[in-house]
Write a protein that binds this DNA or RNA. Structure first.
Lengths: 342, 342
DNA sequence: CTGTTAGCGCTTTCAG
DNA sequence: CTGAAAGCGCTAACAG
């Protein structure tokens, strides 16, 4: 078992191996200019003494921290958890530590965070769904500080980011509903300040147009990604003179809200109204009926973003743009073909 | 806006303020031995230059890192997310950073983690649901390394930990069902290696005894906290010659599995079978019907544990034992009174 | 109260 | 290839 608080330093190792501590440092840093025999001797000394390099000291001297900061808005939903899971997985492969900052969606926190950043606490940054990234992007870019945005539509500027094909997902979901025979398809939007919400809506529009289905503005309800919006949206849609036979919610949480609204009116899902979501969060397969939705590869997005960042850390000059990972239709039990006369 | 990568050091500040850098250090560390006027001068100089102390250096020199490590098994469920949320909230109040380690429930990761620990990466440790804490506890205790366990039954040793009143929760849930008129109450256990699972079962037994309801071993199904166990457990229970009229699952996820099993047999929740869970995870209120359950104050547990740790960090000698936070019945829609002749 | 002097443990030149 | 020396930015005695 590894002993805790082993205060073995390179000096101890050097003594044990009979070399200068500079040589030990070289071995630690995989410097080529060490004779194999010497390296072996040092390595075995390290082994014997149970040496573990002191990160603090390495950072101070070397000017790097070996840890990346991850800024997330929240931890409540499984959504973000999935992304972090991916980040963590990739990071643990590369000897970087993960320092987590939560903004709780407040601007003051974000500022505080930037200050921390300035401390040189981390070598790079992973920004998950930043609230208003514009503020930071220019600052970060100017200072040439490595960072990658996750799941946020770029603000026009070219900067490293990973997202999902939201437009395609919106299209696919709508198309699926159309192919099931639905024509009156309600849509509950996400928070329209976010590019992803916009793209999903665009995808919906495009599918409608592709299949020559008349678009009715009434069928679009403006939500904000919260469950309550789903409930209210579906309620409003069902109150229409010609209510939709299917509802496409911009995220799973709203889809759940919609399902509740539908049932609270004595209707059934999917018999009376089909519901499709977006995200494929873990609970999508846990609810009843299980939710048909568009899968966003959250975990993978975390991984890819991390890879991009590590790459950036190694080649600071490297230019990288936005990467979009494919979304995918996941058919479960919340949608069914339109019945006769419905 | 705070400038990034401001390389201002205490030396710069000292020059700007016209004092020695030692004095600046004193100001940073809230040392009382500084004349107010001097302090002001330094403070304003810091302000002007946008000084931010370098954590690495402070750590190296001062022997502390100003960050606490949080070890979690996983991030998939909202369960852990809630706890982290509490930890994060409390930590952000105290200028400590949170370094997250995920074990993914593998022993090798835990070992790796201990090694990291040895590096002196963190000042203290928050261990969320450790897999086999016995290995670490002795090691940590021997080295007098500050740590707090979260939601794990102590292994008999007295050590700082926070948990919930699982026994009480088990009792309350069962009692609630009994008061609704149920007599045949099925129980799906959690992973019995965990103290919390055991306690919940004990609570169930106690309630039955208290109300003089005969205990039938058949009504207890051994699960492992996974949804699948809930499904299989409920299926098995419903296959009994005298099936239960209510099912108490040791956690919400299994309760959801149970609900699925019930419905897949054409029965309804709660009309035909009542279901109660444990935890009150976020999705408990999102599913249909909403789940009646026992609330565990996850977020608060995180907060309290963090407070304990910070306390420990300040008074290393302080002895603290296990703290149990109250669980609470949350009545929603998955239970109803027993009908005549049921 | 404040300046000075050692390091903390390691990376990086710069000589050999 | 390897040793020696100079810091990284800060804390913590120790003198005044």
């Amino acid at each position: 078992m590894v002993k805790i608080s082993s205060k073995v330093t390179i000096v101890d190792v050097a003594a044990e191996a009979g070399v200068s501590f500079g040589t030990v440092s070289r071995v630690i840093n995989h410097d080529k200019h060490v004779r194999d025999e010497t390296r072996e001797r040092v390595l075995s000394a390290m082994q014997r003494l149970g040496f573990v390099a002191n990160r603090q000291a390495r950072s101070l001297a070397g000017g790097k921290t070996n840890s990346v900061g991850v800024l997330v808005p929240d931890l409540g939903t499984g959504y973000i958890g999935e992304i972090i899971r991916g980040i963590d997985a990739e990071l643990s492969l590369s000897n970087y530590d993960l320092i987590l900052y939560t903004t709780h969606r407040t601007a003051s926190k974000e500022a505080n965070f930037v200050a921390n950043l300035a401390t040189g606490m981390v070598d790079g940054l992973l920004l998950v769904l930043p609230r208003n990234p514009a503020d930071f992007i220019s600052n970060l870019t100017q200072n040439n500080f490595p960072f990658v945005l996750i799941d946020h539509q770029g603000t026009g500027k070219e900067c490293p980011a990973v997202g999902a094909t939201n437009w395609q997902g919106g299209f696919t979901a709508t198309e699926y509903l159309i192919q099931l025979g639905h024509q009156r398809i309600g849509f509950i939007t996400g928070w329209m300040d976010l590019g992803c919400a916009l793209d999903r809506l665009e995808g919906y529009h495009a599918a409608l147009r592709t299949y020559h289905i008349p678009e009715k503005p009434d069928l679009i309800y403006k939500g904000n990604f919260f469950q309550q919006d789903g409930f209210e949206g579906a309620s409003a849609l069902l109150d229409l003179y010609e209510p939709p036979t299917a509802i496409f919610a911009s995220n799973d949480v709203m889809a759940m809200g919609a399902m509740d609204a539908i049932r609270s009116r004595g209707l059934r899902v999917p018999e009376d109204v089909s519901v499709i979501g977006f995200d494929d969060i873990p609970q999508a397969s846990l609810i009843h009926p299980t939710l048909t939705t568009i899968n966003q590869p959250l975990e993978k997005m975390g991984r890819v973003a991390t890879q991009m960042l590590l790459d950036l850390l190694n080649n600071p000059e490297k230019k990288t743009g936005r990467i979009e990972l494919p979304t995918q239709l996941v058919v479960r039990n919340s949608c069914r073909p339109l019945r006769e006369g419905q």
